[in-house]
Simulated assay, not measured.
Amino acid sequence: MKKLDYYIIVPYITLLFLGVLMVYSSSSFVALTNTQNSATYFRNQLIYITMGLAGLLFFYFLKTWLLKNKKILAYALGVMFFLLVVVLFAKKVNGASRWISLGVFNIQPVEVTKFILLWYTAYILSRKQYAIEKNWTQAVWPPFAVLFLVAVLVLLQPDAGSLVIIGVVMTIQVFSSGMPFRVGFASTAAFSGLLGIYIRAIYLFRDKMPGISEYRLERFEAFWSPFTLAEGAGMQLVNSYYALSRGGVLGVGLGRSVQKTGYLPEPHTDFILAIIGEELGLAGVFFLLSLLFFLIIRILYVGIKSKDTFSSLICIGVGTLLLIQSVINIGGVVGWLPISGVTLPFISYGGSSMIVLSCCIGLVLNVQKNSR
């Protein structure tokens, strides 16, 4: 325990404390309405945090050679694909099948997928370092082949936001493994250009655009003209603006949010940052995001300093996962990006995300422990 990295564990614990406090505040009205108990989501979040801490400790004390065991990784991939197939037959919520109900607990397979693919990519690329130097195309096709299979299953749910996160994390890991810089730069520029063309095409052709569902089109419409659709698809973003505007610099006070009382849908999950902005103001948001981004920078630093390729790619993957997920969530709350349903790490209500990300922190602490 003397080798524990306090630059990682202290921000992590602080974020958990702030998160559970804001989950209680933001969910109290919804919980009282749905379950007649204002502390329902708060109690559940405490359980998720406890399970997350258990996962963190498990991966912190886990021997590194077990993570590099080919059979264990193969079993993990098998479980991942099994869950991704099973969830397609689960009950749909808001037009999507993303959760497997276990009675008292719901599993979101895509969160487990993030962790296993991050692990798999680090393993496979660390084993192919010589091949990457000689012929990088042959070395990097296995992770992208697995990514293609995962993409098909995730899009069937559908969950485009999570797929973007998974794709970016794996791509950054591949670029960090020794691929020539020009190839990485050209690939990134090409992908960004195609994505821009795709979004522009949706804007021009709207419902005539092939392959675009009505639900996804509404998300883009709400992104472009939220106040025009304030009574429908734009409701979340408009009420997020109201919450942030009302909070000002110092906020209206903890527990005094108006938007959480039936105006802002799901205030304790995707849009918890808007409630934080309303109650704690810009100062509270800045403090919270400073902690989160300090944690991300520290994780990336540990990865860069690590002399073991597998450990380095694990840390780079975890840091990228936290960064991309945070950017997508924040972008949706402030209207910079379309709303995607992605949670804010360690702050938003949710079990699968909390447990998986805590396990990721445990992996990073394990890497740092071995480095020391």
Score class of each variant (00 low, 15 high):
S26P: 00
G262D: 13
A283M: 07
G335Q: 09
E231I: 06
P109H: 12
P158H: 05
R200N: 08
M80S: 00
H268S: 04
A54Y: 14
G248E: 03
G331I: 13
F61Q: 10
P180E: 05
E231V: 11
L117H: 00
C315H: 00
V110I: 14
N37K: 15
F148M: 13
L280V: 06
V327M: 10
M51Q: 10
L56P: 01
G247L: 09
A233N: 08
G196A: 03
V140P: 01
C315N: 08
T14V: 13
F227M: 07
V112I: 15
V86M: 10
L156I: 00
S176W: 03
N69D: 09
L147C: 05
L125Y: 08
Y349F: 10
S162T: 03
T33G: 01
R200T: 15
I361D: 08
I72H: 02
V174M: 09
L264V: 08
L156N: 04
P226K: 13
L4T: 11
P142C: 04
E214W: 12
S326I: 13
V87Y: 02
G303D: 11
A76E: 03
K3W: 03
A243G: 11
K63H: 11
R216Q: 15
V154G: 01
K128S: 15
F105T: 05
Y349G: 02
Y75G: 00
R219S: 06
I355W: 06
L56D: 02
W65V: 10
V23G: 02
V183I: 14
K70G: 00
E266K: 15
V150E: 00
